[in-house]
Design a protein around this nucleic acid. Structure first.
Lengths: 250, 250
DNA sequence: CCAAAAGTGTTTTAATTACACCCATGC
DNA sequence: GCATGGGTGTAATTAAAACACTTTTGG
C-alpha cells in the first residue's frame, strides 16, 4: 500500500443491493422494484442504494431493507426476536465490474435477506413500483414477462438464490422464511419451495424434531393447514445442523 | 436510488486484501507483510492494495497475489492447470466499517487464496517484510510474538480460515494446497493440518479414492514420504464432493 | 363417513467407524 | 530384519429412504 495520498487511488461509489427472498404460494419469490430514472429506467431491479458517509455496510443494508419493505432485522444477539416482521440478513458478495454501472465506478455489496411471507405486500410505495415474483420470473428465459433485471442484478439474484438453497441444508436458516410460530408441515413446505422438490413428510418430521436445538415446541397447536391439529414450534438456538438436511438429487 | 449527481454519494476508496493460506510443516499458515508506513507502521498486515480505475475486483486480487507471492491464479475454466505455481482464489467478504481505516473511508473486498507450499518463501521483497506463519500466530492471544494484525485484518484472517476449514468438507478445495501431483497421504495431511485433527489413514484412503471425480491417478508413484511407494494423483474435475468429507467433532 | 394433514413404527439400504491385516520400499 | 507409510478386507454401528399404519381434526 502506498502512502496516503488522495490522488493515489480512484474514487468509487459504494452501494448495497438486496436479494430479499420469501416463500409465497409454495414458490420462492424475490422482491424487485421498478427503476424510476436512467439508466435502465422502467426496468425491474433489486432494491438498494448508496452507503452513507458514516454507515457500516450491514447498517446500510438494514436501512434499505426497512425503507423498502418495513422489515426489521433479527439480531441474533438479541435473545428472542419479538418483532413480528423480522428478517434474517447476511452479506452475500460484492460486485465491482468497471462497466456494471454506465454512469460511474460503483462497487455493490450485495446482501441476502430472508423473510416470512408478508401479510401486506408492501408499504411506502405504489403497487406498480415494487413486487414479489417467483425467482424464475427474473432468471432463465422467464424474463419475458418482466424484461431482464437492471445492471448485473440477475447475476446477484442467482447468487443469492443459490446461497439460500445451499445454506438451508446445513443451517436452521429455513426458519427465517416462517412466522415466529410454525408447524413442521409449514417448515417442510418451505424446503420444498426453495429446493423445488417433494420431501417425505414422515421422514422430514422425524428428522427436524430429532435434531437437537433446531425446533422448540411452544405447546400450542393449530389447524390452519387443515387435518389433524399440528404442534407449533419456534426456531431453536441451533444455527448449524448436524447432521444436515439432505437435498434429494434432482 | 436518487438521480445521478456526483455530490449525492460519498466517495470511498476500495481495496482488496488477501488471506493467503498454505500448509507448511503440518500447520495451516498465512502470509503476512510488514507495513512500511503509517498507520500501523511496522505491524504485520494482510497483503493488499487499492483497486485500480478499470480493474475488476477479481483482477485486482489476482494482481496483488502475483505481486506479493509470484503465484498465478488457476483459472477453473482453463482445462488443465499446467502452471506449477498456481493458486485457488475466491472472494471472501467485504469489510466497510467507517472507522476501519483512520485515514479515510475504505471498503476492502477480501479474497481467499489457497496455495501449495512454496519452495521459495517469497520473491520480490526482503525476508523481513513478508512471512508465512501458522494462523494461530495472528489469532487468539498468540499475537504475542508478532503483535496484532493491522486494521481489522485479524477478523478477516479468522473469516478466511473458517471459510477454508468448512469448504474443504464439501468441495475438492483441499487439493489447492497440494502440488500438481500428490499422494493420498499428502492430501490427508492437508486435511489434518487445516482441521487440526488426526484422520484414520485407511478410511481416508477409501473415501477419497472412492469419490468419483475427486482424484485422477497419474500412473506414477513416489516414495518421498518413505515407506511403500504411493500412487500419485491429480485433482479431478469434481468441485463438489457428495458425500462430503466428515470433519470429526473435537 | 370421508378427506386431509399429523405423527409413529418398521424394514431395507447405504455410509461411516474401528481395527485386523498385508504390501513394498529404505536402511 | 525391521521401521515406515501405503493399501485392502471386514464386522459393528449409525443414519437415511421407503412405506404401512394410526391419529385427529373439518365438512
Amino acid at each position: 500500500m502506498s502512502p496516503y495520498d488522495p490522488s493515489a487511488f480512484p474514487p468509487f461509489a459504494v452501494t448495497v443491493d438486496l436479494v430479499v427472498l420469501t416463500v409465497r404460494r409454495h414458490a420462492l419469490c424475490a422482491l424487485a422494484v421498478r427503476r424510476g430514472e436512467p439508466p435502465f429506467q422502467g426496468r425491474w431491479a433489486l432494491p438498494g442504494g448508496f452507503v452513507r458517509e458514516d454507515e457500516d455496510l450491514a447498517a446500510a443494508a438494514a436501512r434499505e431493507l426497512l425503507e423498502e419493505t418495513g422489515l426489521c432485522v433479527h439480531d441474533p444477539a438479541a435473545a428472542a426476536f419479538a418483532s413480528e416482521n423480522g428478517a434474517h440478513i447476511e452479506q452475500l458478495a460484492s460486485y465491482g465490474d468497471p462497466k456494471r454501472d454506465p454512469r460511474m465506478r460503483v462497487v455493490s455489496v450485495a446482501h441476502l435477506a430472508l423473510a416470512p411471507d408478508l401479510p401486506a405486500p408492501r408499504a411506502g410505495g405504489d403497487a406498480n413500483s415494487a413486487r414479489w415474483a417467483p425467482v424464475e420470473t427474473f432468471l432463465e428465459q422467464g424474463a419475458e414477462q418482466t424484461g431482464p433485471l437492471a445492471f448485473d442484478h440477475a447475476q446477484i439474484l442467482a447468487d443469492g438464490v443459490e446461497r439460500a438453497r445451499s445454506k438451508i441444508e446445513y443451517s436452521s436458516l429455513a426458519t427465517a422464511f416462517c412466522p415466529p410460530e410454525f408447524t413442521v408441515g409449514e417448515l417442510r413446505r418451505v424446503y420444498e419451495a426453495v429446493w423445488g422438490v417433494a420431501l417425505d413428510p414422515r421422514n422430514f418430521h422425524r428428522k427436524v424434531t430429532g435434531t437437537p436445538g433446531f425446533l422448540v415446541p411452544t405447546g400450542g397447536t393449530t389447524t390452519r393447514q387443515g387435518g389433524r391439529p399440528a404442534q407449533l414450534f419456534r426456531a431453536g438456538g441451533a444455527t448449524l445442523l448436524n447432521p444436515p438436511m439432505l437435498r434429494p438429487e434432482v
